[in-house]
């Protein structure tokens, strides 16, 4: 069996953490508490979340989903466009390639810090440009724009990821279908629509899945940029999990319950997506 080694290792590596996660979500464990002193409290943590006693839970669900939808769609469209641009012969290709990779190669927490410096309304470089060129001062991280600014960083950082996956896909498409189509007199648009798109579809969807999953668990950048603020403007669920379980509060059990709900959300969502691709993919 080819699958066995990978599956065995994955089971070994993830069984304990997952079981622990589910278990701890029905206890009252707090960070730094001795493990032997925890108590089982049933589904109280879940009840607390779903009944709205945790004020920030539902707003963060909404924020996370909005963020995911926007980020994924923008990144996919832009990424596809860039992949098409790359998929032609031109000079300095490896230079462009290197440029595109830069956003992903910088450590995310440093990315967050750098953008925070650049976004600063008083001494940030972005406002230096907007003030020079447009004569306006933008409060990038103020309550109205913080969400969009965070989104912008994500788009900046991860569009190249989508672009490169699609580009790799475009590169490994066999060339005969195109030659055949050319013989048949198909134009560029037609051959793109009827040949490229279906062939690239599985990878395109893969990029969509990875981006939607990863944008749901995005943490480092918003954590550094805004800490979820101002107010709740950028309180993504992943930040919320961290804030509950670590940082100042240390409600590990409540964080675990939130994480389990987050997991349920991501899994059902990607289940939908995956089914969609696999079925679509099989018709090609």
């Amino acid at each position: 069996m080819y699958i066995l080694p990978a599956v065995t290792i994955l089971v070994l590596l993830t069984l304990v953490p997952s079981v622990f996660l589910y278990y701890v979500s029905i206890t009252d464990y707090e960070l730094g508490q001795l493990w032997s002193t925890h108590k089982l409290i049933g589904f109280r943590n879940y009840h607390r979340l779903l009944s709205g006693r945790d004020f920030e839970f539902w707003p963060s669900v909404r924020i996370s989903i909005t963020f995911m939808l926007l980020a994924t769609s923008i990144e996919t469209v832009l990424g596809f466009a860039i992949a098409l641009l790359l998929n032609q012969e031109f000079r300095f290709k490896s230079l462009v390639f290197g440029c595109l990779l830069m956003p992903i190669t910088i450590t995310p927490s440093i990315v967050g810090q750098m953008w925070k410096l650049m976004y600063n309304a008083e001494y940030g470089v972005l406002n230096y440009f907007t003030e020079r060129l447009l004569g306006v001062k933008v409060a990038w991280l103020g309550p109205e724009l913080a969400f969009l600014s965070t989104l912008m960083v994500d788009v900046w950082q991860w569009t190249p990821f989508v672009a490169l996956i699609i580009y790799a896909g475009l590169r490994s498409i066999p060339s005969e279908p195109f030659e055949a189509a050319l013989v048949d007199g198909a134009n560029t648009v037609q051959s793109f629509w009827y040949i490229t798109l279906p062939l690239i579809r599985p990878l395109l969807m893969l990029a969509v899945i990875f981006r939607s999953m990863d944008s749901l668990k995005l943490f480092d950048v918003p954590f550094v940029l805004t800490q979820g603020g101002p107010g709740s403007a950028t309180e993504l669920l992943s930040l919320h999990v961290y804030r509950l379980g670590f940082a100042q509060t240390g409600w590990v059990a409540r964080a675990a319950a939130t994480a389990v709900l987050l997991l349920v959300m991501i899994i059902s969502l990607s289940r939908l997506l995956v089914r969609h691709i696999r079925e679509g993919g099989s018709t090609v």
Binding site: I3, A6, V7, L10, T14, V16, P17, S18, F20, L21, V24, W35, I209, M213, L216, K217, F219, S238, V241, Y242, G245, F246, V252, A255, A256, A259, L262, L263, I266, I267, S270, R271, V274, R278
Partner: peptide, 26 residues
């Protein structure tokens, strides 16, 4: 095979902040 593949994918979804404590203990 689809379910197994999907299960594998879902492992990637665990937020690191939620799994870091069990990893630490193990």
């Amino acid at each position: 095979s689809e379910s197994l593949a999907f299960w594998i994918l879902s492992l990637r979804m665990l937020p690191p902040m939620a799994t870091v404590i069990p990893f630490f203990i193990v």
